[in-house]
Design a protein around this nucleic acid. Structure first.
Lengths: 249, 249
DNA sequence: GTTAGTGGTATGCTTATCCGACCAGTCCAA
DNA sequence: TTGGACTGGTCGGATAAGCATACCACTAAC
């Protein structure tokens, strides 16, 4: 057991002094958590207006909770007008603008696009450069397979989105720094709805695949400069597309 | 309400296909959450071996839960040998190596020191440069006041730690990019235990204050290069001190 | 020895969650 | 048009968590 002698520190006389470090703990039922998770899938763009949710029984099975608990969560979102529930039919998404009140919603609503973009540029520049020098043959192979799968998704933008995320995470993880990899993954996730709308635009999937291919070639060549260049081109395109979509929104 | 026509995507035929996006939801009672929060304060170094926790009643009041719930959380940690509970006496910390199982513990235990340091250097270099060009007169004033408070804490390293964190967060928030500010704050928090042990060493508080003063002068001069230089010196010292402590641990 | 502050225990209540069963509505294929 | 599969809606009984309040027993400082 690791114990070490250390100087006697003055213990706070008032218990509230350190107890306040904890602060009030938000009370969250399973229903609340599930409502937030469903909400996150909606705000992040996985489910759009008009889309049907999986059946209550399927959600309950997947999340390993009772159908009652799922029903409670769905009722919460239905009460906010986010979901539309009709007996005998699948529950559908009515709106995607969800009130910001859960811890996860901090990520989606709080940051402006410019800040997220600037942070992404800073971090991914370093991540991609490191990845280009450190990636293994196995890592390259995974990236290549991901590209093939992406090519198969030309007619299915939602499926492409899943492959897109996999491709980016593979890149991040190749950099050898788990801290930066996780930060980059979080920043990617912030922009998921933008990505979803972007890939729905005509020709967008093909353009992204081209960008990914350029990144892959730079990785294959183990060329940090080329990798940074290719990623900057890709991210600038994402940024411009997102600004256009937001202006139209 | 923002609704937009979008291409008809192929809806997953198998409900499990999208339900699986959610995955099993970890069941967390208030007792679990509170145990994790207390654990986080221990692993992050706020409480060390031998330190007394606030009384159960004080914790209950601060976190706005019942004393029973707090007792349950404490029992959990006592069962792991982390806390020592004796009737009539304050609960004390017996060990600080807590089993990694909560979402918050991912942050403390998962990353190696080198990765956190490299990530911090990358992000804080950019943050401090931006802060040097953008900081307001009010911001400078707050930094100055923080320095004065730090000087008052020479004999009280634990109090100094609180001021240290405030100083760093003030710097981060001055950069104008909330995403980078939050990331930098998270990375600072990762190293809290190391900071706590470091400030307990003889002369460490004074050395940190000197570093902080250099950073402040660079901010006052609105000199990004000087600010980056001063921060790099400060972080390298933290890094070397932490490695020494870990080697001794 | 006394007292303040601490942890320990008990009781009764409310709420959340669970499980299984069954009812009622919708939609699609035959 | 009809039947069946799939959906949401409801119910009853059980367990667990959390809460508030009160009181008991131990510890340590004065």
């Amino acid at each position: 057991m690791n114990t070490q002698a250390r100087p006697a520190l003055r213990r706070p006389a008032d218990p509230a002094e350190t107890a306040d470090l904890l602060g009030s703990v938000p009370r969250q039922t399973m229903r609340d958590v599930i409502a937030q998770k469903l909400g996150a899938l909606i705000t992040s763009g996985v489910f759009g207006v008009g889309d049907e949710l999986p059946a209550e029984r399927a959600l309950a099975e997947a999340m390993e909770v009772s159908r009652d608990t799922v029903r409670g969560a769905i009722q919460t979102l239905a009460g906010q007008g986010v979901l539309r529930v009709v007996q005998g039919s699948r529950t559908t998404v009515a709106r995607t603008d969800i009130a910001v009140n859960g811890p996860e919603s901090r990520k989606v609503a709080q940051y402006d696009l410019g800040s997220v973009h600037a942070a992404r540029l800073l971090i991914e520049r370093q991540v991609i450069a490191e990845a280009a020098t450190r990636i293994t043959a196995k890592g390259l192979d995974r990236l290549a397979r991901s590209l093939v799968m992406q090519q198969d998704c030309l007619a299915d933008p939602l499926r492409f989105l899943i492959c897109d995320r996999e491709f980016h995470v593979l890149l991040y993880r190749a950099c050898g720094n788990p801290v930066l990899a996780d930060i980059a993954t979080d920043l990617y996730t912030y922009q998921l709805e933008a990505r979803r709308r972007a890939v729905s635009m005509a020709g967008a999937v093909q353009t992204s695949i081209c960008d990914h291919r350029a990144i892959f070639f730079a990785m294959e060549a183990r060329d940090p400069e080329a990798a940074m260049q290719a990623m900057a081109v890709h991210e600038d395109r994402i940024y411009q597309t997102t600004k256009t979509l937001l202006a139209e929104g």
